[in-house]
Amino acid sequence: MEVFLQQLVNGITLGGVYALVALGYTMVYGIIQLINFAHGEIFAAGGYMGVILISWMVAQGYPPFVCLGVALALAMGYCALLAMAVEKLVYKPLRSSSRLSVLLSALGMSIFLQNGLMLTQGVYDRAYPGEMVQGGFEIGGAMVSYMQVVIVGVTVFLLVALNGLVFRTRIGKAMRATAQDKTMSALVGINASRIISLTFAIGAALACAAGIMVGMYYGSVRYDMGFVLGVKAFSAAVLGGIGNITGAMLGGLVIGIIEVFAAGYISSEYKDVFAFIILIAVLYFRPTGIMGENVDDTRV
């Protein structure tokens, strides 16, 4: 029982991170049917921006939670701008061409950004400054560290905020309308370009927050950290039903928990295998993912 609880805690932490990154894939797919392969690199860029900002602020002697909060806000802003720049320069000019050429340019962008990070930040792992959030507590024999609480807390906060934005505001309504029918929404006065740009920005900001938390949790970041996590998060988006926001959250959580349980109860060698077996099994019976991609109301 103790072990089960502990594995559940581990799985939820990991799943939360996957969910945050998966949202970016799913939102962009929902609105322009593009699989944005450069998304994982935005996540890595966020991790680096976080380490730069946090190191600097810790050196100035600010208290840990101020550092974390300010760094999160600034880095998320940077990533949002970066993603908007990528969209404007690379994807927008190709919007009327075939989907394949946009997809290929997304792959190219991913390689470009990863190598950019390597050139500017070096090939070594970069350490996050000492434990900012220390200690933990026990529930029923399972060890929960405060760092895990912070990760889950920030994730839940961001997910709730995103839900509010998409389903309760005019901007959200415009996003959903654009996702359903670009031409029609443009006819009723929605600036589709701006909405698409905004979607990229929001997805990037979430990935950026995930990047910082992953960096703090594992103690370091590396230029290629976005690749593996990007693949997992993309699978999570597909599992939940790509294009579906609630699906991405659920998919992230499911992949995270399955991975941990497969590693814990079967063999850690096969944890990725099991995550992908579940993915294939779900897609076999429900080709549109757990939540389905065509639930118009929740698609962005």
């Binding site: 072990v3 594995q7 581990n10 991975e259 590693a263 814990g264 063999s267 850690s268 060698e269 990725d272």
Partner: peptide, 17 residues
């Protein structure tokens, strides 16, 4: 005797064992 994947960063499941 457990085997983890190269490049893994999350070892929580193995460490729980």
């Amino acid at each position: 005797h457990e085997h983890v994947n190269q490049g893994d960063k999350d070892f929580s499941a193995v460490l729980t064992k």
